[in-house]
């Protein structure tokens, strides 16, 4: 649906050149939710803004639904943008317009005649759950409601793609959840491809089918969200994953433990296998569960357990190798003393 080829964006600043995006290659498939995660300044906004040419790339290609956006005339580009909605962290609604008129503006931009606008606007407001707010002004709405209006505006012309620039970053956790649920519904029921950028791994975990990690203008790792979570390669990716999955054991507890402390990760397809009990039966060791939880990544479970093994040193080592052969992710947090 979206193909980005060797895309670079270099800003000319007084202090020299600033690299926003550095030779990025990326493909977003039709119908998926694609997440791009990275710290502030990584170039996420620059990249997503190049996808609808709000920012003109310095070099590279942007191909959306088979059309090379950089070769379009200004008019052609406007037409192409109508098939790509965009929402922002700051909502950016026109304060002098009612909710109705804010949404109707997008239809007006596409040249839809006045008579036809009304029905479509009401339809959209119903979709985002704001049918009763049509005559209000943005100043009278909460952050979550404003984002819903901006989603309605972005969807007005039946776009194929929805670009979300930190769409939930200004919202509280429960509002974030409800906006994410709405995006999921839009993706599911309308089949709209969604690209979202965020600095919150929680958001990626919740709704992204695939994701990419960005640093210094480059994409350093990408793949299916579940793979990224269960088997991250890069340090930065691990850092991001840790914000969601990590649990630091209290120092005191670690000091008290004499045995070998292992962290085991169970992927959804393995979670039910009785690997741990088999391991305990096959070896002369005993185990203490110190911590455990199951995270759902896009509705697929990922279990993490931390346990202390007690027993003979060699036997513990054999037990560790036993689970390591059967699980992808086994990490020794502390060796036996």
């Amino acid at each position: 649906m979206i193909v980005i080829k060797e895309l670079s964006k270099i800003y000319k600043a007084k202090t020299g050149h600033v690299i926003g995006v550095d030779k990025v290659n990326l493909e977003v498939h039709k119908g998926e939710i694609y997440g791009i995660v990275g710290y502030s300044g990584a170039g996420k906004s620059s990249l997503i803004r190049c996808m609808n040419i709000l920012e003109r790339p310095t070099s590279g290609k942007v191909i959306v639904d088979g059309v090379d956006l950089l070769r379009l005339s200004p008019k052609g580009l406007r037409k192409a943008r109508q098939s790509m909605g965009m929402i922002f962290q700051g909502f950016y609604l026109a304060s002098a317009k009612t909710v109705f008129d804010n949404v109707a503006f997008a239809l007006k931009a596409a040249g839809i005649p006045t008579e036809k606008r009304k029905k479509r606007v009401l339809e959209l407001l119903k979709l985002v759950g704001l049918a009763d707010k049509a005559e209000q002004y943005p100043a009278q709405l909460s952050g979550g409601q404003k984002q819903r209006v901006s989603i309605a505006r972005a969807l007005a012309n039946n776009p194929k793609v929805l670009l979300c620039d930190e769409a939930t970053s200004a919202l509280d956790p429960s509002t974030t959840k409800s906006i994410l649920a709405l995006l999921k519904k839009i993706n599911h029921e309308l089949g709209i491809t969604i690209v979202l950028i965020t600095h919150e791994m929680e958001v990626v975990k919740e709704i992204c089918d695939r994701c990419a990690v960005m640093q210094d203008g480059k994409i350093i790792e990408q793949g299916a969200t579940y793979e990224i979570f269960s088997n991250p390669k890069e340090d930065l990716t691990k850092q991001f994953i840790d914000t969601v999955l990590n649990f630091d054991l209290p120092k005191q507890l670690l000091e008290q433990c004499k045995g070998m402390i292992l962290q085991l990760q169970f992927r959804g397809d393995l979670a039910s296998d009785p690997i741990v009990s088999d391991m305990l039966q096959a070896h002369k060791v005993s185990a203490n569960i110190l911590h455990g939880k199951v995270e759902y990544i896009k509705e697929k479970p990922l279990g993490i357990f931390i346990m202390e093994l007690l027993g003979d040193l060699d036997e513990m080592e054999r037990a560790r190798r036993y689970v390591e052969e059967r699980l992808q992710q086994v990490e020794v947090i502390q060796h036996a003393r």
């Binding site: 192409a80 109508q82 002098a96 317009k97 503006f105 931009a109």
Partner: peptide, 26 residues
């Protein structure tokens, strides 16, 4: 807010429409 104008560009509005329907009313 520049973002409001940008959001209008993002829905594919023409410069003239942005002046008339966004900048002037705002």
């Amino acid at each position: 807010d520049k973002g409001v104008i940008e959001a209008a560009i993002a829905v594919g509005a023409s410069p003239w429409l942005i002046i008339k329907d966004i900048i002037l009313p705002e």
